[in-house]
Amino acid sequence: MTVGLTHFLILGTILFSLGLYTVFAKRSAIAILMGIELMLNAVNVNLIAFNRYVAPESHIGQIFSVFVIVVAAAEVAVGLALVISIYRDRISTNVDDLDWLKW
């Protein structure tokens, strides 16, 4: 059995679903940020696999995934800073404690 596009796409889907599950299930803001990272990395797996199997003559997918990695790093940097700022206010990073604004 050779490893093909399908396998990579299944891996990407599983990673994405795990990330989404983490975002909804975890209560700690840090764990949620990790879930978001999983989702973004699932996209990277997709992009690289598509680049290799669908359009190998160009490198658009690889370039796209480099951009995704850079932006994800920036997002996490801001995210952790915000977690510190909320921790100073509430002495907690539990998202259940974020209930001052309610619709």
Partner: peptide, 22 residues
Amino acid sequence: EAGIKYLILGSVSSAVLLYGMS
């Protein structure tokens, strides 16, 4: 609090958008 809520929801929505783009 608004900042961290926007961060989590905004990042998830971008990840979903990105998956669609891929």
